[in-house]
Simulated scan of single mutants.
Amino acid sequence: MIIGFMEDNDILNEEFLPFIRTEKGQQLYDGYLRTVQKHYPQYVEELRGMAEATGVPFSKFFAAALRPELSSIIDLDRHGNEGCTDIYVKTSKQLLLGHTEDLSRSQEGRVFILHATISSQTDGQTDNAQVQERFTAITCAGMLPGNTFGLLPDCGLIYTINDLYPVVVDMEKIPRQVVNRAMLASEDFSDMQQRCACPGVGIANGFCANIGNLSQEPELWTIEVAPVPEEPRSRLEKRQFQPASSASADVFVHVNRYELLEVEEIPERLKSSAQRCKRISELPAPADIPGLQHILGDEQGEHFPIFNHNMKSDVETLFAVIVDLTKALVYVYSKNPKLGPSNILPIS
């Protein structure tokens, strides 16, 4: 599965790898690797482990982990837009989050649910090992987990990710996919915010995390992050999705553009978000799970449908989730959400 993905990934093989062999590309690659090795060496080891197990060079795994940064730096807008759509819904009885995940067609059939427990060991002894991380993630073969959907049962957190596209991508900062992987190790909501912010070093690229917090009363939060050029910090803005004040449903939509922070964004990368938001405004506002399924499964639109199976694009919607924070359940859809869930996961 991993070897097949590495062989079939045209953008990796035809764009990223030739670029990192150039003088500029090698400098960027080396700078990002030094930064990750310094701040998150354990995730470098995760990639090395996959490389050793498959016989695929480590450089291919690390270059794949730099997809958000390299796509912007070498201007790959022509390859299409990933179009993740998130919809928050709050009624007097339910708090819901819906998410679609658009990924490269090379990842079709290579997406899976990962349940992981990572423990410390001393001298090979497991008797006294302590759990360092416990999470469930929907992930792709050959990639670090945490970049699409993450669930932390011990602290009652779930999150989904929207790619964001600031014009400025910073060098020798922590790559976005590494930050999202680190979120899976969060101890609580405050710790997750710190991991998003990357204090003392800063993030290389932008993203939005849509976070459900069940540690007490269920909450939904939006956190947007952007790089700060040549400064060892990130910009971060957060906002809680406030409860409905009446029996009618409150709805908030987040796609692949900034809503909270004022950031200069790559214009070509905003076309998909604009069209999906327009289409959502034309559909009945969701007030329950069937309403969310109807919107997340909408295939109308020639270029940028919400549920994208457009054969003209190099990306497609490979899965969707609906999180019911009131019941602490996650519904996973491997096909169009209108067809019903393929898996149901408890949050705790």
Rank of each mutant, 00 (worst) to 15 (best):
S104C: 09
G98P: 08
Q107W: 11
D102S: 09
P153A: 07
P57C: 14
Q94E: 06
I113P: 05
S106F: 14
E82I: 10
Q121R: 15
L97P: 05
E52N: 10
A51Q: 05
F61N: 12
R48Y: 01
A137K: 02
S59L: 13
C84T: 07
L151Y: 02
P68A: 12
M143Y: 08
S104L: 14
V131S: 07
I118T: 15
D102T: 08
P153S: 08
Y88P: 00
D127Y: 12
T100Q: 05
R105D: 02
G150V: 01
Q132L: 12
S92T: 03
V89E: 00
E101F: 12
H115W: 13
S72F: 00
Q132C: 02
Q121T: 13
R105T: 09
L151F: 02
Q107A: 14
G109H: 12
P68K: 09
S71T: 12
A51E: 06
S71Y: 07
D77A: 09
P153C: 10
A116N: 14
M50C: 03
Q132N: 06
F112M: 11
S72V: 04
Q121E: 10
T148F: 01
L114Y: 11
S72E: 09
S59P: 01
V89D: 01
S119Y: 09
H99C: 10
N128Q: 13
F62Y: 12
T136P: 01
D75N: 09
F112D: 04
T148P: 00
Q121D: 03
C140I: 07
D123N: 15
T136I: 08
G109P: 04
F61Q: 11
V89K: 08
V56D: 05
L66R: 12
G55Y: 06
S120G: 15
L76I: 04
I138Q: 02
T122C: 14
L66E: 04
R78S: 05
D75H: 09
A65G: 15
P153G: 05
K90Q: 08
E108Y: 13
C84E: 03
L70I: 14
V111C: 14
L114P: 09
D86S: 14
G124H: 08
T100F: 04
G80V: 02
S104P: 06
C140P: 00
T136K: 03
V56H: 06
F135S: 10
G142H: 10
A137F: 00
L76Q: 07
P145M: 02
T126D: 05
F62D: 06
I113A: 07
D86G: 03
S106L: 03
T148L: 11
G124K: 10
G98I: 10
D127M: 13
A129T: 06
F149D: 00
L151I: 12
T117E: 15
S59M: 13
F58G: 04
T148Q: 09
D75R: 11
D123P: 06
P57M: 13
L103A: 15
V131K: 12
R134C: 02
K93I: 01
L76G: 08
T85I: 01
I74F: 05
K93A: 11
F58L: 06
D86C: 13
Q107M: 14
T126Y: 11
V89P: 04
F112V: 08
Q132K: 10
S59A: 15
R48T: 00
S104M: 13
